[in-house]
């Protein structure tokens, strides 16, 4: 059975043109987006295998050598029809405990951590689940914005099994006072949708007296064809 998906957008997604995030004015298309019925181009998509992981693992804590508060982060990837998405490519990246990325573009003089590579890469299991070990990242300032500090966050890139089921997002931490001040998180108009980007503490994921467990579930766009509307 096929269904018609609502167009991507609305209050549960950030607008392409977002006042709170100054850079969007030059990159958001001004012309209306052209409605396109889903064709085989959109309902097919790249399939990834172990060779695409290139040896990047699921342990950002690098065998407990990275400085910071250790955490286990796990969740399930579903599609908007509620079906688990197995074999989704999940790419994760984050700053270190002092809010510094291991990337040459990050020129802020915060300390690097020699054991920190800052990335994880995996394929979801048969139930769409993932699990990584990492450290809590630090906040960092956005250059040339006055006093805007990004709250601690972890970047997620996901590819489900269709070109249409592609998502890049960020995960935040519960209770952080910077969350309410963040132009990027607050660019999502709907409060429930913002809350779904905030991980939940989950003691069932704890490693006893070692690492704190958090859960973050992700919903990708559905994979079906859109029927023609007559």
């Amino acid at each position: 059975m096929t269904r018609i998906y609502e167009p991507f957008g609305g209050p549960t997604q950030p607008d392409l043109r977002t006042k709170a995030y100054f850079r969007t004015t030059l990159t958001a298309p001004a012309e209306p987006l052209i409605a396109l019925p889903r064709t085989v181009t959109e309902t097919s998509g790249p399939v990834f295998g172990d060779q695409d992981l290139c040896g990047v693992g699921v342990d950002i804590s690098n065998n407990n050598t990275v400085l910071g508060s250790l955490m286990v982060l796990a969740g399930q990837v579903l599609d908007e029809d509620g079906r688990p998405v197995p074999n989704a490519l999940v790419e994760v990246w984050q700053a270190n405990a002092s809010g510094k990325y291991p990337h040459e573009v990050d020129s802020r003089p915060a300390p690097q951590d020699p054991n920190f590579t800052g990335a994880a890469r995996l394929l979801t299991d048969a139930e769409g689940r993932y699990k990584i070990t990492t450290i809590r990242p630090g906040a960092y300032p956005v250059p040339n914005t006055g006093n805007w500090w990004r709250p601690p966050h972890i970047h997620f890139s996901l590819y489900g099994d269709a070109f249409a089921s592609r998502l890049i997002t960020q995960m935040f931490f519960p209770g952080d006072p910077l969350n309410d001040l963040d132009g990027i998180l607050q660019a999502i108009p709907d409060a429930d949708a913002r809350n779904r980007l905030i991980a939940k503490p989950d003691s069932s994921l704890d490693i006893h007296e070692h690492a704190l467990g958090f859960r973050f579930d992700i919903v990708l766009r559905g994979r079906n064809e859109t029927p023609m509307v007559d």
């Binding site: 997604q13 908007e80 029809d81 990246w93 990337h103 990050d106 990335a119 890049i168 999502i188 919903v219």
Partner: peptide, 21 residues
């Protein structure tokens, strides 16, 4: 039916996490 998770910007500091040779 569940709403898709909200998108967020890629940001500037990602190359090392993504690109395969």
């Amino acid at each position: 039916m569940t709403k898709p998770t909200a998108s967020q910007t890629l940001g500037p500091f990602y190359n090392y996490a993504f690109l395969r040779p």
